[in-house]
Amino acid sequence: MSNQHRIFQNALVAAVGMLFAAPMLYLLLLSFAEGWTFPHLFPPRVSAGLWETMWGREQGLVGGLLLSILLSVVVAVGSTSVGFLAARYVSYHRWRRGLLFLSYIPFVMSPVVLGACIHVVFIRLGLVGTVAGVVIAQLMFALGFAVIFFVSFWNAERKSLEEAARMLGATTPQTYSRVLLPISRQPLLLCFLQTFLFSWFQYGLTLIIGGGKITTLPVLVYLYTGEANIYYAAGASILLMLPPLVMLWGNRAMAVRFGR
C-alpha cells in the first residue's frame, strides 16, 4: 500500500470518526459553555455552573434520569423474558404464522400511532399519566419486537436439544437453567439491549400515555428545547447518551468474552 493511499485511508477513518463524535463533543461543550453568543466560534467562558444548577431539585433532572433508568430496565427485562418464552410458544404452535402476524402488528405501527390508538382505552382504565401506563404501552411495542427477535431462535435444533436434555432426566427448570439459557445468552443480551434502547429514547409514546406527568429524560430534552434552553437541553442530552454508550461497550466486551 502506498503512503498516499494510507494517508487518504487514515483521513477517511478520522472523518467518519469525527462525524460520529462531533455531535457528542458539541453537546459536551455546550453544557459547559457560558455566555456563548453569536458570532463567537467558541464559548468565552466554561464552567460547571450549569451542571450544578441542573442537578438541583427544582430542575427534575435527577428524577428524570432515575425514572428513565427504572422504566427502561423494567421494559427491557419484561419484554426480553416474556418475549423469549412467548416466542417459543409461537414457534412450536400449529398456527405459527397467524400468531407471528399478530406479533408484528404493534411492531409495524410507529410507537406514536400505537399511543394514539390505545390512549382512549388507557384513559378509561385510569392508566394515563401513570408510570404503570407508560410501562404497559412501551411493553406492547417492545414485546412484539422481542417475540419476532426470538422466533428464529426456537428452531428444530433447539427443540431437539431440549428433548435430548429431558430424555437424560432434566426437568423443565433444569432444561432451561442448564441448556436453553446458557446457549441463548447472546441473543438474550442483544434483545435486552435493543428493548432498553427503545424505551430509553422513547418520547412520543411516553408523552401521549404519560400525559406530560411522566418526565423521562427524552421528555425533558424536548421540554428544554421547546423553551429554547439549549444549555439545559445539551446537559440532558449528554445524560441521555451515557447509559447506551456504557451498555454498548459492555455488550461488546461480553461478545468478545463469549466469542473466546
Binding site: S160, A164, M167
Partner: peptide, 12 residues
C-alpha cells in the same frame, strides 16, 4: 434415551 440421526451435543 432416544439418539437422533445427528449427535445433538450441548454446544456450550
Amino acid at each position: 434415551v432416544y439418539l437422533y440421526q445427528e449427535p445433538l451435543l450441548f454446544p456450550h
